[in-house]
Write a protein that binds this DNA or RNA. Structure first.
Lengths: 223, 223
DNA sequence: GTCTATATAATGATAGAC
DNA sequence: GTCTATCATTATATAGAC
């Protein structure tokens, strides 16, 4: 686990960084330095004194998240990445960190692809471990499957954020625990069913795909 | 189908709108009016003359996409929404429209939630149709399942965009057909396997979840 | 309808006092 | 380290000529 610290005994630099993560996470990287400074209770000039430029501030946030995440990951090597992230997101202390991370992915910068690559690799490793212990089915395309699983989790995160923004679900930044409970309540059942039994009743589509290899599926009149 | 029109015989207003959709879709809504005007080959002032404000321009783009999509949808009522979107995305003429749509969702405005709601509803209806015809398994949570499927497709779209931005995959805006082919090649097999057989070997997790109802899954030592 | 020129506000960034 | 004051640039938006 990481250091649990009170809010007051942070250096101004750390306070600015935290404020930036929260503000960028909520509003995107279009948010202004003045806003970040106000959130941190300092002058705009101090932000640039500590981080040089807006880009520097952003990089500092990226580095911080990266380091924290690596610490958490080494603490949870045998668990699925999605679950660890979900647990983090439900912890008030780490929720802004996850929100920021989602924003980085949504923003689509160069760091985003690398981060997602890491998620896919972790997931692939975890699924392979499941295969060895017999709980996960073997697959002909481990990488593709891991990609699919990660994509699903990212999409779910995106959906949750949209619904929170529309006021239809608890906000992950305001009430992280409630937000996770909401995701769980609305998707766990369906997700487990899908992962247990699949969606289709038989393998005609899969067989057709395998037969035609790289051809479009028989799309026109059935799923 | 919709009107096929040449590029030249568009009114300036339409040319500006198209340029805006493309630019906003590529760069996000932070893109400036000057850039849009330059893309359309007009002066910045003309953009505001026609649309009043940047917000007005954005609303015009939203309306246009909404109308086009409704026309396409009425033309493909019995097909899965994801497939229709994928087909559109692969058509050079409509690719910018899809790119813009993805941007709207990523931006997370009020229209985004409504649009996703529509996708979920369509998917739920389509899956129910599949249940009736016997190709899709019944579920205890149709809405949740539709949400899950839509989330997966959104996540896949997001992943594709990230990889394209990182230069590791063909760009959906530059070469739409190649981009779709790439998605298909990298995920269709794994997706079909997942939808046909699921991911888990047995129903212990599902059973445990159903028994505990609304409790967290037995996460610690297996998927 | 379309332009040039301009107003006004906000942005990131700098200089220098304390 | 932290501030106030200010700069240069860009943003959206307006006024008015053609």
């Amino acid at each position: 686990m990481l250091n649990v610290r009170s809010v007051d005994d942070l250096t101004a630099r750390a306070r600015i960084r935290d404020a930036a993560m929260l503000r960028f996470g909520r509003d995107g990287f279009g948010a202004g330095l003045r806003q970040v400074a106000a959130d941190a209770g300092v002058s705009p000039a101090l932000v640039l004194h500590h981080f040089g430029s807006k880009g520097g501030l952003r990089e500092a946030c990226d580095r911080y998240v990266h380091d924290e995440l690596r610490a958490v990951k080494s603490d949870a090597l045998d668990r699925p990445a999605g679950e660890v992230v979900a647990e983090l997101a439900a912890t008030a202390q780490y929720a802004p960190l996850v929100t920021y991370l989602v924003r980085v992915v949504l923003d689509g910068g160069p760091g985003a692809a690398a981060f997602v690559d890491g998620l896919v690799a972790d997931t692939a490793a975890y699924l392979e471990h499941g295969e060895r212990t017999g709980t996960v089915r073997p697959t002909s395309d481990p990488q593709g499957r891991a990609r699919y699983v990660v994509a699903g989790q990212l999409g779910l995160l995106l959906l949750t954020q949209l619904e929170a923004a529309a006021g239809r679900a608890p906000s992950p930044t305001t009430d992280p625990a409630a937000a996770l409970a909401h995701i769980t309540a609305t998707t766990m059942q369906a997700g487990l069913e899908l992962f247990t039994h699949g969606l289709l009743t038989d393998s005609t589509y899969l067989d057709a795909w395998r037969a035609g290899e790289r051809t479009a599926p028989p799309a026109r009149e059935q799923p």
